[in-house]
Amino acid sequence: MSRGLLTAIVVLFAGAALAAGMERWGESGDWTILIDPEKGNGCLAWKPFEGDMTVEIGVAPNQAGGFFAAYNPIWVQIEDGSTGIVNFDFGDAKFEGEAVGVFKNGVPGGYAFFDNPAFVTEFGKRQSVTIIGESGAEVELDLSGSSKAIEAVLTCQAEQPEPLKN
């Protein structure tokens, strides 16, 4: 079996497992757009990155805001429900917030809720972001294609029966 085919199969199964309970709305480049009933039919963009890390960014209508989440099986130090500060450095724009340790399908990660629409704007217009955890650990993400993914999330959300609350 070719390495490319094996990678595609792994990504397909990882996406299917991560999307359990969610409905696939569409695609935007490397991002998969999903609808999450647990977030009040909130739409989100999901993407796998190097090193088995996956990222979600989306809308949480049942909380009147949005969220960013990242998961990686090597983050074994994360405890479910633990909290810490996370920083998002876009270069000339920086955001800080509280992240909560969560496990999704057995994979550890962090979830940060935000009600600042400028965060989504920065995420969509930048080519990269450095995420800095409370421990000082840094992860840099390539955000290529995120602008179109954010547009797709907003289009998806506009189609949902429960409108986004301000």
Rank of each mutant, 00 (worst) to 15 (best):
A70H: 05
Y71V: 11
G51D: 07
F49A: 06
F49R: 04
F49S: 02
G65S: 11
L44A: 07
E56M: 11
P48M: 07
P48Q: 11
W75L: 00
V55E: 03
G42I: 00
P37G: 00
E56P: 05
P61G: 10
P48V: 06
G29P: 02
N41S: 10
E27K: 11
G58S: 08
I74F: 09
P37L: 00
K39W: 13
G51N: 03
E56Q: 11
A60D: 14
G65H: 14
G40N: 04
L44C: 07
V76R: 15
T32V: 12
G51R: 00
E27L: 09
P61L: 10
I33F: 06
Q63Y: 07
V59P: 02
L44I: 03
E50D: 15
A60F: 14
A64P: 12
V76Q: 15
Y71I: 10
K47R: 15
L34H: 01
F67E: 02
E27V: 09
L44G: 08
V59I: 14
F67C: 01
K47D: 02
P48H: 14
I57Q: 06
I74A: 10
V59S: 12
A69K: 10
L34D: 02
G40D: 06
I57N: 05
D52I: 02
Q63E: 13
G51L: 01
G66D: 14
I33G: 04
A45G: 15
A60S: 13
A45Q: 06
I57E: 05
I74Q: 09
V55Q: 04
I74G: 01
K39R: 14
Y71N: 13
M53V: 07
A45L: 09
I74Y: 11
